[in-house]
């Protein structure tokens, strides 16, 4: 076991899979010699050579496009989009092409591709670097979307994503890259895709979150505990497909739900999850399900981002509202 930050755990997962499977290729802008702008691929080119870990020219649509092509040649591409705000450049290659390869070929072909990309707010990046755009991909049948909230999960989920035979978008919240360390096994292990994790058990209300909002939810739960409110916190880990089994089990116990996402209210995962809960468990609910989300503007100019982003106080406010309903 070793103490690792989330970014170290990600590098470690890449190393494990580069070692395990000679078909794994890691590439993108600045990922080679420079080790990526966040150093996620640090040392990998030295260790595995330029044939396996390489820089690409600057074009996201081609980075995603060559991934599909390489997949037809038996490779397992792990491209990086330098920031997820640049996914718009690659949107056709992902949602229009990669997602449909299996379907279009009548299940004779597949795209075992894992697109890694940093995203998420609160680190004072310029425009189009911080947006939560997971909803755009989650809307596309054929794609999976994975968002870890901690180093242990990041490694295990990334290994599972790379081994998965369908395309995965793996989103890494920038605020979590180096914010804390935890024990991460040095060996190879995996965390199953599509399975949520109950991070904290509780009886009065269920908080559903993913990415950095898991930590805001845990903090809110701690504060609520002081007021005598016992909150259960679910970390979705995979936001598409969603693990409704775990969610429903919790709802049946707590009867109250607050859904938390960093994305704007009009987009993202909350509406889909909330509508499913009410379809399947309305008789278990003692209060309407409330959502904590960012306002419906373009991601805020950095000057206002701290106020714009949802935080644990917003979560506490909504929890009090569902408790006192």
């Amino acid at each position: 076991m070793a103490q690792m930050t989330m970014i170290q755990a990600i590098t470690d997962a890449l190393r494990v899979e580069l070692k395990n499977d000679e078909n794994v290729l890691v590439f993108g802008e600045d990922v080679g010699q420079n080790g990526g702008v966040f150093r996620a691929t640090e040392g990998l080119q030295d260790e595995f050579g330029e044939e396996r870990v390489f820089d690409t020219p600057l074009a996201e649509s081609a980075i995603a496009g060559i991934s599909i092509g390489l997949a037809t040649q038996g490779y397992r591409p792990v491209p990086e989009l330098q920031f997820f705000g640049f996914v718009y450049e690659a949107m056709d290659a992902i949602n229009g092409q990669m997602a449909r390869l299996r379907y279009r070929s009548g299940n004779t072909m597949n795209a075992p591709i894992t697109i890694r990309s940093p995203f998420g707010g609160g680190v004072h990046t310029p425009e189009l670097h911080a947006d939560s755009l997971e909803g755009l991909i989650a809307q596309q049948p054929g794609m999976k979307v994975v968002i870890p909230s901690n180093p242990y999960d990041a490694k295990g989920l990334l290994i599972s994503s790379i081994r998965d035979n369908d395309p995965v978008v793996f989103l890494e919240h920038m605020k979590l890259y180096r914010s804390f360390r935890e024990e991460v096994p040095e060996e190879d292990y995996s965390v199953e895709l599509g399975k949520a994790n109950v991070k904290r058990e509780g009886t009065d209300v269920t908080l559903i979150a993913y990415g950095a909002m898991v930590h805001s939810s845990l903090k809110a739960a701690e504060e609520l505990d002081k007021e005598g409110i016992s909150a259960e916190v679910i970390d979705l880990r995979t936001v598409m497909p969603v693990d409704f089994e775990t969610i429903l089990k919790s709802v049946e116990k707590t009867n109250r739900v607050v859904m938390v996402q960093e994305a704007q209210r009009q987009a993202g995962m909350a509406s889909y999850i909330v509508s499913n809960i009410q379809e399947r468990a309305i008789l278990h609910l003692e209060a309407p399900i409330l959502t904590v989300a960012a306002p419906d503007t373009v991601y805020a100019f950095t000057q206002a981002e701290e106020v714009w982003l949802p935080n644990y106080n917003d979560i506490i406010e909504k929890v009090n509202a569902v408790i006192n309903f």
Partner: peptide, 23 residues
């Protein structure tokens, strides 16, 4: 003056839709 979120909301559309009016 420091940027306010309320100002950003005003920059979204010519006429604010309901969701943004509430926000």
């Amino acid at each position: 003056p420091k940027q306010k979120v309320s100002e950003l909301i005003g920059n979204m559309y010519e006429e604010l839709p309901q969701n943004l009016q509430e926000q």
